[in-house]
Measured scan of single mutants.
Amino acid sequence: GFPHNFQETTYLKPTFCDNCAGFLWGVIKQGYRCKDCGMNCHKQCKDLVVFECKK
């Protein structure tokens, strides 16, 4: 597997964290999205993600 390539992201529609399944709250920059596989997560979850990037 590969490490994720997370970038701070502004979501335009309701989005949930792929790590904890919690809602990504806020208006802008609600969470992080992996540029390579599209995984979404909270800032506090991005260092805890157990799934490797599937590129």
Rank of each mutant, 00 (worst) to 15 (best):
residue 1 G to D: 15
residue 1 G to C: 15
residue 2 F to K: 10
residue 2 F to E: 05
residue 2 F to C: 07
residue 2 F to H: 12
residue 3 P to D: 15
residue 3 P to K: 08
residue 4 H to C: 07
residue 4 H to V: 00
residue 4 H to T: 00
residue 4 H to Y: 01
residue 5 N to P: 04
residue 5 N to E: 10
residue 6 F to G: 02
residue 7 Q to D: 07
residue 8 E to H: 01
residue 9 T to F: 07
residue 9 T to A: 05
residue 9 T to V: 05
residue 10 T to W: 11
residue 10 T to Y: 05
residue 11 Y to I: 05
residue 11 Y to G: 03
residue 11 Y to D: 01
residue 11 Y to C: 08
residue 12 L to C: 08
residue 12 L to S: 09
residue 12 L to F: 11
residue 12 L to N: 01
residue 13 K to Y: 13
residue 13 K to S: 09
residue 13 K to G: 05
residue 13 K to R: 07
residue 13 K to C: 08
residue 15 T to S: 08
residue 15 T to C: 05
residue 15 T to H: 07
residue 15 T to P: 03
residue 15 T to E: 04
residue 15 T to A: 15
residue 15 T to M: 08
residue 16 F to K: 07
residue 16 F to D: 04
residue 16 F to I: 05
residue 16 F to C: 14
residue 16 F to Y: 13
residue 16 F to W: 04
residue 16 F to Q: 06
residue 17 C to P: 00
residue 17 C to L: 00
residue 17 C to Q: 01
residue 17 C to R: 01
residue 17 C to M: 02
residue 17 C to G: 00
residue 17 C to S: 00
residue 18 D to P: 01
residue 18 D to Y: 05
residue 19 N to G: 15
residue 19 N to L: 13
residue 19 N to S: 14
residue 20 C to S: 00
residue 20 C to T: 00
residue 20 C to P: 00
residue 21 A to V: 11
residue 21 A to S: 14
residue 21 A to M: 08
residue 21 A to Y: 15
residue 21 A to H: 10
residue 21 A to F: 11
residue 21 A to D: 09
residue 22 G to V: 03
residue 22 G to Y: 05
residue 22 G to C: 15
residue 22 G to L: 11
residue 23 F to A: 04
residue 23 F to I: 12
residue 23 F to L: 15
residue 24 L to K: 05
residue 25 W to Y: 07
residue 25 W to Q: 09
residue 26 G to T: 03
residue 27 V to N: 04
residue 27 V to H: 03
residue 27 V to S: 04
residue 27 V to I: 09
residue 28 I to E: 05
residue 28 I to P: 03
residue 28 I to K: 14
residue 28 I to N: 06
residue 29 K to H: 10
residue 29 K to Q: 10
residue 29 K to A: 09
residue 29 K to W: 06
residue 30 Q to F: 01
residue 30 Q to V: 02
residue 30 Q to Y: 02
residue 30 Q to L: 01
residue 31 G to Y: 11
residue 31 G to L: 02
residue 31 G to F: 07
residue 32 Y to G: 07
residue 32 Y to Q: 03
residue 32 Y to S: 12
residue 32 Y to I: 08
residue 32 Y to V: 13
residue 33 R to V: 10
residue 33 R to L: 10
residue 33 R to Q: 06
residue 34 C to S: 00
residue 34 C to M: 02
residue 34 C to T: 01
residue 34 C to Y: 00
residue 34 C to V: 01
residue 35 K to E: 14
residue 35 K to D: 10
residue 35 K to V: 09
residue 35 K to N: 05
residue 36 D to C: 06
residue 36 D to I: 12
residue 36 D to F: 10
residue 36 D to L: 11
residue 37 C to A: 00
residue 37 C to L: 00
residue 37 C to Q: 01
residue 37 C to I: 01
residue 38 G to K: 15
residue 38 G to Y: 03
residue 38 G to N: 14
residue 38 G to C: 10
residue 39 M to E: 07
residue 39 M to C: 03
residue 40 N to S: 12
residue 40 N to C: 09
residue 41 C to T: 12
residue 41 C to M: 06
residue 41 C to G: 05
residue 41 C to N: 03
residue 41 C to H: 02
residue 42 H to L: 00
residue 42 H to Y: 01
residue 42 H to N: 01
residue 43 K to P: 08
residue 44 Q to A: 13
residue 44 Q to G: 15
residue 44 Q to P: 09
residue 45 C to K: 02
residue 45 C to A: 03
residue 45 C to I: 03
residue 45 C to L: 00
residue 46 K to C: 15
residue 47 D to W: 09
residue 47 D to F: 08
residue 48 L to Y: 13
residue 48 L to W: 11
residue 48 L to S: 14
residue 48 L to F: 13
residue 49 V to S: 10
residue 49 V to R: 14
residue 50 V to R: 09
residue 50 V to W: 09
residue 51 F to S: 13
residue 52 E to S: 07
residue 52 E to K: 11
residue 53 C to P: 09
residue 54 K to G: 05
residue 54 K to S: 09
residue 54 K to H: 02
residue 54 K to M: 13
residue 55 K to G: 10
residue 55 K to E: 06
residue 55 K to V: 06
